[in-house]
Design a protein around this nucleic acid. Structure first.
Lengths: 216, 216
DNA sequence: TTTTAATTGTACGGTATCGTACAATTTGTT
DNA sequence: AACAAATTGTACGATACCGTACAATTAAAA
C-alpha cells in the first residue's frame, strides 16, 4: 500500500494491447473482489472474467494481495475524482452545503460504493494499511475539504462553532443518518433525486440552525 | 437464518460437559470468524482454539455456514441485552437522550463491536439473510425504541417534528457522526467516559435545538 | 523481416480446506 | 455395573487454490 506502482514495472514495452489487458484484469478483479471478498476470490476467476490466462495476471501483478491493493487504489482515485466538496465562492454557505449534501447522498448510496465498503472493512484485519489508505483518500480528505469550507464561513461570520472539525462531522452525520449502515447490510433504500434533495435540505436546515446560535 | 436451532437438535442427552463444549466452540468460532472473516476461517482452527476435535464441531453444528449463522445470532442476542433505550418515565427527555447517547457511544465503539461490523457486512453478498437478521435485531430495533420514545415526547409537546423516525435517525447521526466509519477502517479513536459525555451532550443539545423549533 | 515481448494452455508441487468414515476411548446416565 | 452418548485421532476423498515452469504461439516493434 505504499507507492502506487501501477503493476510490476514491466512496462518497458508499453503496448496498447497490454494496457487494455491490464485494465481488463483490474476491472475483473474489482468485480470479483467486491462481490466475494478477498479470500473467496480466486485469481483464476479473475482471469476468466477478464478473458485472459492466469499467467498473464501474474505477468502484470505480483500476487493476489498486490492485485487487491491496486484495485483499492484505483477505486480511491476514482472516488477523489467523482466527489469533491466544491468551494463556490459566489454562493452562500447554505447553497454550497445543499449541493455537497446531495452529492454525498448520491455518491455514497450507489450500489457500487456500498459493495466497496462492504468488502473493504473486512480486510482491515488482514492488512490495516489498506484501511489507513482508504481513510486518507476518502473520508479524511472529504471531511478536510468540508472543514476548510466551514472555516471560511466562520471567518466571514456566517456561522458560529467552537469546533469546526466536529461541526463538519456533524454535518455528515446529519445528512447520512444511519443510511449507510442500513445499506451496507442490504436494506433496499432508493432515493430519487427529489428525495435526496429533500433529505439534504432537512439536514442543511438543521445544521444551519445549530450553527447560528452562539450557545453551542 | 430461520428458526434458531441452537445446534443440530441432538440435544437429547444434554450433558453439561457437552454444553460446555458447545459454548466453547461458539466462543472460538466467534473469535476466529470476527478476526479472519468467513472464508479465511477454517473449522480446524476453530476446533483447535476450542480445544476440541474437528469431529465434535461437526457433531453439534451442521456446517461452516450454519456455525457462522449461529455465532451471528448469539452476538445479536447479546446486543439486545446490552443496549436498550430505556424509557425512564420520571426523567425529562434531555436526560434520557443523554443517557442513550452515551450508551450508544460506549456500545458501538467497543473493539468487539467494531470487529463484528467489519466482518458481518462482507458476508451480506454471500448470504443476504444474515444482513436482514442483523438489521432486525440491531439497528432497526434500537431505532424503533428511540422512535417510540420520541413519539411520547411529541405527544407531551416536548418536541416538534413532522417525521419522528427521521428525527430518531438524525439523533443517531448526530451522536456518531462518522466515527463508526473511521473505527471500522482502523482509526484509533478512544474516548474516555468524560469525552463520551461531552460528545453526547453536544449531540443532544444540537438535536434538542433543532426539535424545539416548529419550522422543521 | 527479424527480433523481442507478450500471451496462452497445460501441467505441476505444495498446501489447504471441507465434510465424512471408522474404530477406539472416554464420559455420563440409569 | 451396564449401557448409550459423546469425544477423539487419524485417515480419506474430493476439491480448490496459489504461484511457477515450460514450451508453443501470437502480436507488436525495430
Amino acid at each position: 500500500m505504499a507507492a502506487a506502482e501501477t503493476s510490476k514495472l514491466h512496462m518497458q514495452a508499453d503496448r496498447p494491447a497490454s494496457r487494455r489487458k491490464i485494465a481488463g484484469i483490474l476491472a475483473a478483479a474489482r468485480a470479483e473482489f467486491f462481490t466475494n471478498g478477498f479470500s473467496a476470490t480466486s485469481i483464476e476467476a479473475i482471469a476468466a472474467r477478464a478473458e485472459v490466462s492466469k499467467v498473464t495476471v501474474y505477468t502484470w501483478f505480483k500476487d493476489k494481495e498486490n492485485l487487491f491493493a491496486e484495485v483499492v487504489q484505483a477505486e480511491c482515485a476514482e472516488m477523489r475524482e467523482n466527489f469533491v466538496v466544491e468551494n463556490l465562492a459566489d454562493k452562500n454557505l447554505g447553497d454550497i452545503l445543499q449541493i455537497a449534501a446531495q452529492g454525498m447522498l448520491e455518491f455514497l448510496m450507489r450500489e457500487e460504493m456500498v459493495r466497496f465498503e462492504r468488502i473493504l472493512a473486512a480486510e482491515v484485519n488482514r492488512d490495516p494499511k489498506i484501511g489507513e489508505f482508504f481513510l486518507d483518500h476518502g473520508p479524511r480528505t472529504l471531511l478536510g475539504d468540508l472543514t476548510n469550507l466551514l472555516e471560511l464561513a466562520v471567518d466571514k461570520g456566517e456561522i458560529v462553532t467552537a469546533d469546526v472539525r466536529g461541526s463538519a462531522e456533524m454535518f455528515a452525520g446529519l445528512v447520512m443518518g444511519r443510511m449507510d449502515l442500513f445499506l451496507r447490510y442490504g436494506a433496499k433504500i432508493r432515493l430519487s433525486a427529489q428525495e435526496r434533495e429533500q433529505r439534504a435540505r432537512r439536514a442543511v436546515d438543521a445544521w444551519m440552525l445549530i450553527h447560528q446560535h452562539n450557545d453551542m
